[in-house]
Design a binder for these strands. Structure first.
Lengths: 337, 337
DNA sequence: CTGAAAGCGCTAACAA
DNA sequence: TTGTTAGCGCTTTCAG
C-alpha cells in the first residue's frame, strides 16, 4: 500500500530493516536468496519508499531547481529540455519555476527552494545580477547559470558571446547597406541587454558611424514591449531602415507594428532578432535571428552542476562558452527587395 | 548558515525548539516578546528550515506534480501557467515533468513522484488511459486530469466537449462548401483523437455524407507527423479540399506540405487545427483553430485538487466542463479565394 | 505561554 | 551476510 513502511516489508520478509534498505539501494551485500524474498514482499505490499525520509537521512533530494523567466518562451523551454535530458539520465528530477518575467518572483523561488528542497539551482534568467548570485553562492548554496558569464569559483556557467553576436548582426546589416540601425533593448539592467548593446555600439564605431541615442529603446523582452518601443523609436524622429532586437519576442512586436504601419519587411524595414524561437521560421518573411545552442547549454550546465554536487568539489572546467550563429533569412535580406 | 538547525536557533534565543517551531509556523501561542527574540536569532543565523525534515514530520510536501506531453507545445505551457498561478497563491510548488510525447515516460514519472515527493499529481496528457489512471487512484494516490472526462469519484477533471467541438469544425467546413474533408488524427488510442474523430463522423452523417476511411490518417500530434500524414492522404487517391487536424501542431505540418506542393491555403486546401497555439496567428493565412480556455482549465483543476488534499474529502464539484470556441480565420474562409 | 520528549521513515555505522 | 540502533531536523502532543 501507499503508506506501508520499511519495517512492514521487513516483517513480511522476515528480515531486518537494514536488509530491506540494502535491497532497495542495490547493495551488493545481500544474498540473492534474501534479495528475492525481500523483493517479493515489496511487490506484494506495493511498497514505495518515502522520499522525505530518504532525503532527510541521506541529505540529498536528487532534485534540481530551475528558474526561468518565462515558460511560454521557447528559448527557455529548449534549455529546460536540455537540462531535463541529462537530469533524467542521472536520475535527477527537476522543479521548474516560471518567474513570469518578474525579478521578485525569481528571488521568491530562490528562497523557496534553497531550504534543501533541491540539491542545486539552475538560473536561466537575465534579471538577477551577478552580485546577487554570488551572494547566494557565498552563503553555501549550489547553483549554476545558463546564458551568461559569471566570475565566481563555485558557479558554473554556459553562455554565448553576446558582444560578438551583436557585432555580427550589425555588421550584416551594414553589409546590406543600412546606415541607420535601431537597437531594441530588453530590461535596461539585464546582461543580455547591455552586452548586446555594447556589441551594437562597437560595430557602429568600427564602421565609423555615429552612435545615436534616439535609436535605442527598451522593450522589456516581450512582444508587447517590442511593439511599443518600435512606436516610440519612430516618434524620436531619427529615421532608420533596420532594427536589431535583443530577442525574437520583441522582434515579433516589430513585425506587428510594421504590418499595421504598412511598412513591408525587409524593403522598408529590416528586422533581426535573437534566440531563433520556433515561430520565427513560420513568419513571412522568415525572420533573421541568432541561433544559440539552447539544448546543449542546458545539458552542459546541468551535467556540470550534478558533478559538482556529487564530487562535492570543483574539478574540471567551470565556464562553457558555446558558439552562436547568425541565421540570415528574409527579414534582413536586401535581395528580398 | 545554510546548515544550522532549529536547536541552534533555540540555543541562541534561549528558548526551546518547540517555541522556535511555533514562531516558524506562525502559531498564535507565542508572546510577541519571545517571537521577536526568536526572529532575531533566525535572521542573525540566516536560518532556513530543512524542507525534508518538515515534510517527513508533517506528512506533506506542499508540492504538486504535473505531467505534460510536451513542454514545447504552448497548449501545455498555458495550462501549466494556470496551474502555477493558483499553486503559487496557495503556497504550493509544482514539479513539471515533460513526458516528451512518450507514454512510458509518463508512467516513469508517475512512479518517480508517487512516493510522497508530491502531495498530488496533475496529468495533462492524452496518452495514459482512463483505466490506468483509475488504478492509481484506487491505490490511494491523489490525482487530477486536465483535458478529458473521467468517471471516477476521486479524480477531478476539467475538459471541453471534443465531440461537439469537432462537429462545429466540420459543420463550418461544410458551410464553406467543402464536401470532401480529411481528418488528421493523433495517436489512435488517445482520447482527443477518437473523440474528435467521433465528432467528425457525426457531422458528416448529419449532413448525409459518406464516411471515407481513406480520408483519415494518424499524425501523432506533432508537426512532422502531420506533414507525413498529409502526404499519405494524398497517396490514398481520395480527393479532398479541406482538412481538419486534431491539433495545431499537425496542421502546421499541413501548412508546410501545402507550401511545398504549391497548394495555396485556403483556395486549394482549407485547414483547421485545434488548440489555438500562439504560432497560428503569425501564419499567413492565419490558421483557423479551436480555442480552449487552457489557463482556466489549469487553475480550476489545481484549485480543486489542492482542496481535495487539504479537506481530505471530495466535497463539491468534481467535473468541470468548459466551453471551447471555433476561431474562424483565413485558412478556412472561402472569401479568401 | 513555554518546554520535554516522542517519533515521522529512512540510512549507515557497528556488532555479530 | 545480516541485525541492532542511533540519529537526520522537524512538529506536536502533553505537562507544567
Amino acid at each position: 500500500m501507499i503508506d506501508s513502511r520499511i519495517v512492514d516489508v521487513a516483517k513480511r520478509a522476515n528480515v531486518s530493516v537494514a536488509t530491506v534498505s540494502r535491497v532497495l539501494n542495490d547493495s551488493p551485500l545481500v544474498s540473492p536468496k534474501t534479495k528475492a524474498k525481500v523483493n517479493l514482499a515489496i511487490h506484494e505490499m506495493n511498497y514505495t519508499p518515502n522520499a522525505s525520509a530518504k532525503n532527510l537521512r541521506s541529505k540529498k533530494t536528487m532534485t534540481l531547481g530551475v528558474i526561468v523567466s518565462d515558460i511560454l518562451n521557447s528559448y527557455y523551454t529548449e534549455i529546460i529540455k536540455g537540462i531535463e535530458n541529462i537530469a533524467n539520465t542521472l536520475h535527477y528530477k527537476i522543479i521548474i519555476c516560471d518567474a513570469q518575467n518578474q525579478k521578485d518572483k525569481e528571488i521568491e523561488y530562490m528562497s523557496l527552494l534553497m531550504n534543501r528542497t533541491v540539491d542545486g539551482m539552475i538560473l536561466v534568467t537575465p534579471q538577477m545580477t551577478n552580485k546577487e548570485l554570488e551572494a547566494y553562492a557565498d552563503n553555501g548554496y549550489t547553483l549554476g547559470v545558463v546564458g551568461r558569464y559569471i566570475e565566481h569559483d563555485s558557479i558554473p556557467c554556459t553562455f554565448t558571446d553576446n558582444v560578438k553576436m551583436a557585432k555580427d548582426v550589425v555588421s550584416h546589416l551594414l553589409e546590406q547597406g543600412h546606415r541607420n540601425i535601431a537597437f531594441l533593448s530588453g530590461y535596461a539592467d539585464a546582461v543580455d541587454s547591455y552586452e548586446r548593446l555594447e556589441g551594437y555600439m562597437k560595430a557602429l564605431r568600427d564602421a565609423g558611424l555615429p552612435f545615436v541615442p534616439g535609436l535605442i529603446e527598451n522593450g522589456d523582452f516581450n512582444e508587447e514591449g517590442g511593439y511599443a518601443a518600435f512606436m516610440r523609436l519612430r516618434e524620436n524622429k531619427h529615421p532608420f531602415t533596420a532594427i536589431f532586437a535583443a530577442n525574437d519576442e520583441m522582434a515579433l512586436g516589430v513585425y506587428r507594428a510594421c504590418d499595421e504601419l504598412m511598412m513591408p519587411i525587409p524593403s522598408q524595414m529590416a528586422v533581426i532578432g535573437v534566440d531563433n524561437n520556433r515561430v520565427t521560421k513560420y513568419l513571412i518573411p522568415k525572420m533573421s535571428t541568432v541561433e544559440q545552442p539552447k539544448f546543449t547549454m542546458g545539458t552542459l550546465l546541468a551535467n556540470k552542476l550534478i558533478d559538482q554536487i556529487n564530487e562535492n568539489g570543483l574539478a574540471g572546467q567551470r565556464v562553457y562558452k558555446v558558439d552562436s550563429e547568425l541565421l540570415v533569412r528574409g527579414s534582413s535580406l536586401h535581395s528580398f527587395l
